[in-house]
Design a protein around this nucleic acid. Structure first.
Length: 477
RNA sequence: CGGGGAGUAGCGCAGCUUGGUAGCGCGCUUGGUUCGGGACCAAGAGGGCGCAGGUUCAAAUCCUGUUUCCCCGACCA
């Protein structure tokens, strides 16, 4: 009893969400701070989650015809001159390489914040004929953006991501690509990460620097703030005209190629934490849990327990990611640890269970304890993991719906966000000035123009003009 | 970039007001007893106080500069 008081608990998420987030990151051992300012150390457990994310997505990219390749980390300054909007968007956060040893370089290089210029320059060389199209490339790498404020996984100076870059013959094709990838992303988010998302298009103000149109999927975090979880961009021929990416079509006519780019980053790990986590720590969706089931032997010193527990682990390891906790901590410590790390299922087995040829399964999502026969435990565990997956999504979906509102005026939007943060749907006339006013008066930004439109009012909620689109607004990370 | 907070043992903190050469809890090591919700006893190891200057006989403690981290805001791909 006094022992329990000494245990450092994580901060209550309802009292101090940012602190809770940091506590989870560190106590679940996902990441640590590094000696390099603004850059985190991704610990093996956090990297394990990322590896599973990459494995799922990489398979999807390949299924849809994409190939992985790798571009240099450094980009010569000369390429920076080329796409004006793009550069203006990135320039403030670009890090430069100016010296080699003590020698000042004649041409400076910048560390990629994203690789559109390199891919575009490459396409300009490689693409000659309609037969060279499409080019469907992707690279897994890290990028650098010199952020002023950072948060583990959510915003860092260097972060892990994937950037797809494609070139096509027509505007229809580059648009179709951007939309198809958006579906891959959002399906992955919903089915594997169990995070419900709203898909839509970014407004002119919020779109990617240099893009013709940007598509996004937005998720709602536990504290009611939105997280842009990934984006896809259709460039049309904008970059092609700057980089001179031209090909000869079937009619021997010179044409500009069209392009798309798309990316998701290790920010998804942050989304998982903030959507599913609770006051006991992390809650991992089974699909990306490095350990899906932890076997915890109870009274391991008693004859036969350790052996039996190991036997169960070996059986389960054939069908799922499974470990056994053979440390000499007390069982209660191990239980708490499993919870902190978000392991979806815990299997407790002790002398009493062995006597009855059973074990106790504990769900991380509900805390429910289930006594299950050892015979057929593989099937029981697998079925439970599937139930957990469905429940996590259903739970997050219900919360998102309960935190989605509509507003008829900017003061109403502000009032909602000040009291019950979430998504707010409101009609918009399409004018940039109105969007700016929302930002100034309610400190909210447009998250997206959802693909699934509904009319939640008759006129623009800012100016009262003709309502063009329903837009989802919120405060965002 | 603006406002606020903080850097003392691996982690969480106290000590700075009133300078005298660093302490507590957890963790760690060893031995023993334990083991179904963060066990207990005993014996140990470990830091010179973010960094750089300055004042002083003497600096975690005072002064100056600098850096890193956290929170809020601005900015943001």
């Amino acid at each position: 009893m006094p022992a329990e008081k000494r245990v450092e608990k994580i901060t209550d998420m309802n009292l101090d969400f940012p602190q809770w987030y940091t506590d989870v990151v560190r106590k679940a051992d996902l990441a640590d701070y590094s000696e390099t300012g603004g850059c985190i150390i991704v610990r093996p457990y956090g990297y394990g989650v990322w590896e599973l994310i990459t494995a799922h997505l990489d398979a999807k990219f390949k299924e849809t015809g994409h190939e992985n390749m790798y571009m240099p980390l450094l980009i010569p300054e000369s390429l920076l001159e080329m796409e004006k909007d793009h550069i203006e968007g990135f320039a403030p956060e670009v890090a430069w390489v100016t010296h080699a040893g003590n020698e000042e370089l004649t041409e400076r290089f910048y560390i990629r914040p994203t690789s559109e210029p390199l891919f575009s320059a490459h396409y300009a060389k490689r693409i000659q004929s309609w037969r060279d199209l499409p080019c469907l490339y992707n690279q897994w790498c890290t990028v650098m953006r010199w952020e002023k404020t950072t948060r583990p996984f959510l915003r860092g100076r260097e972060f892990m991501w994937q950037e797809g870059h494609t070139a096509h013959a027509t505007k229809e094709e580059s648009l179709a690509e951007a939309l198809m990838i958006l579906d891959i992303y959002s399906n992955f988010c919903e089915n594997v990460l169990c995070i419900p998302v709203i898909k839509g298009q970014k407004t002119e103000r919020e779109k990617f620097a240099g893009a013709m149109s940007t598509y996004t999927f937005e998720a709602l975090m536990h504290d009611g703030k939105a997280l842009q979880s990934g984006t896809t961009h259709d460039f049309g021929d904008k970059f092609a005209r700057v980089f001179n990416i031209q090909y000869t079509d079937k009619n021997n006519q010179l044409q500009y190629a069209t392009q798309s780019s798309w990316g998701v980053s290790s920010r998804l790990v942050g989304a998982i934490i903030m959507v599913h986590g609770d006051n006991n720590g992390l809650v991992l969706p089974p699909g990306v849990a490095p350990v899906q089931l932890m076997v915890v032997p109870v009274a391991a010193h008693k004859p036969g327990v350790r052996e039996k527990a190991e036997e169960i682990r070996a059986r389960l390891a054939k069908t799922l990611r499974c470990k056994i906790d053979n440390t000499d901590h007390a069982p209660g410590w191990k239980f708490a640890e499993c919870e902190m790390k978000g392991i979806p299922l815990r299997l407790e087995i002790g002398p009493k269970d062995i006597e009855n040829n059973q074990c106790v399964l504990v769900r991380r999502d509900t805390g429910e304890k289930i006594t299950a026969p050892l015979d057929g435990i593989e099937k029981t565990a697998t079925a439970l993991l599937e139930e957990i997956r469905l429940n996590l999504f259903a739970r997050a979906k219900a919360r998102q719906e309960s935190q989605t509102f509509t507003a008829q005026s900017v003061p109403e939007l502000k009032q909602i966000l000040d009291t019950t943060p979430g998504f707010v749907k409101a009609m918009w006339c399409g004018a940039d000035a109105c969007e700016v006013r929302v930002k100034e008066e309610a400190t909210a930004t447009s998250r997206c123009i959802p693909f699934t439109q509904e009319r939640v009012g008759e006129t623009c909620f800012v100016c009262g003009g003709t309502a063009e689109k329903m837009v989802v607004w919120s405060r965002a990370y």
